[in-house]
């Protein structure tokens, strides 16, 4: 069925209000819109790694989830959902369950790129029929903005603070979508909140309804950690895509597809200057840092274009 924005918005809400995420949080915007990929009437079990999302959406006795939900621990969201999906297969095989269920797990970048990486990798390699969604805000926000392997270079975090001898995080961020794509699973995609969510909605539905393992990497800005004005989130996401910092792509059965190419690729400053975590880059004498950042964005963009041209 062709995509229709209004119909997608008309679907029942699957994340209830009353959760305790910060005002303006990108994480719950990601969750709400991913869950709109589910067809009406289909049941789902939602998994969750420990993080902001978990402690805020299931604070006893208040659950914000309209579907069945399981949080286990920080590093094992992939394995936990493997077990849930395994139970589904077994109960189906034994004739104990008629209904169709879909399995969707959410983790922040810390729980996905770092501590939960092994568990995620295992779940993907075993090709469980599940979607793992990383809402990537580029740091351990729940514990107070510590760097993760998803944190971009030069970001000022509480464990890579800017100082007289430091320009923020010294290393580049891990390209997790590419790492997961190397698992040769049926579907991998990267997206964020642009194009009125069309890209995100379509990819979510594909991920949920592709048999086997699927992975979605969603840039989900954090107003506190990135230090921008909360109402600006959509603009930040747009700039992430227009500067090619966060390209939109998918990998379907091993085939890389570029979903969007900016008509005019914007310089990376446009993305960086909106965010307090990169403020130091705009001090006089730090021009070379922005150049280095730009160089890395360019290199990755070219690499992606090459992959998608094959």
């Amino acid at each position: 069925m062709a995509y229709n924005f209004k119909e997608t918005m008309n679907k029942p809400e699957r994340l209830a209000p009353g959760h305790r995420m910060c005002a303006g949080c990108g994480g719950t915007i990601a969750v709400r819109n991913v869950l709109r990929g589910l067809h009406e009437g289909d049941k789902a079990v939602i998994g969750n790694a420990t993080g902001c999302l978990e402690v805020s959406t299931f604070t006893y006795p208040y659950t914000a989830w309209e579907d069945s939900y399981i949080h286990n621990a920080f590093e094992n969201a992939g394995a936990t959902m493997s077990g849930v999906e395994g139970a589904y297969n077994a109960l189906k095989r034994k004739g104990k369950l008629d209904e169709t269920y879909k399995f969707i797990t959410f983790g922040g970048d810390g729980g996905t790129y770092d501590i939960g990486f092994q568990s995620l990798s295992g779940a993907m390699e075993r090709n469980h029929d599940m979607v793992y969604v990383c809402y990537d805000n580029g740091a351990y926000m729940n514990t107070g903005i510590q760097r993760s392997s998803a944190t971009p270079m030069y970001a000022d975090t509480t464990t890579t603070p800017v100082g007289s001898e430091s320009n923020g995080k010294p290393q580049n961020r891990k390209d997790l979508a590419a790492v997961i794509a190397a698992h040769d699973i049926p579907y991998v995609a990267q997206t964020t909140f642009v194009q009125n969510f069309k890209d995100l909605h379509i990819k979510s539905e594909k991920a949920i309804y592709t048999p086997g393992a699927a992975f979605l990497n969603i840039m989900a800005p954090c107003p506190r950690g990135w230090r921008y004005d909360a109402p600006d989130i959509m603009e930040i996401c747009k700039l992430g895509v227009e500067t090619c910092y966060w390209p939109l792509f998918e990998v379907v059965e091993g085939k890389w597809i570029l979903n969007y190419e900016p008509k005019k690729k914007l310089p990376i400053e446009e993305f960086l200057c909106k965010q307090g975590r990169f403020k130091h880059l705009f001090k006089k004498g730090n021009e070379h840092l922005i150049e280095a950042f730009q160089k890395e964005v360019d290199r990755r963009w070219e690499e992606l274009q090459f992959r998608c041209s094959k």
Binding site: I70, N72, N76, Q118, S119, G122
Partner: peptide
């Protein structure tokens, strides 16, 4: 009829067992 899941670590074997048990298995 068992779903046998050869996981990648013991942490995951217990995690998956917890997931399965919570799911009703």
């Amino acid at each position: 009829d068992t779903e046998f899941i050869p996981v990648e670590s013991e942490h995951s074997s217990m995690s998956a067992t917890i997931g399965a048990s919570a799911a009703g298995a």
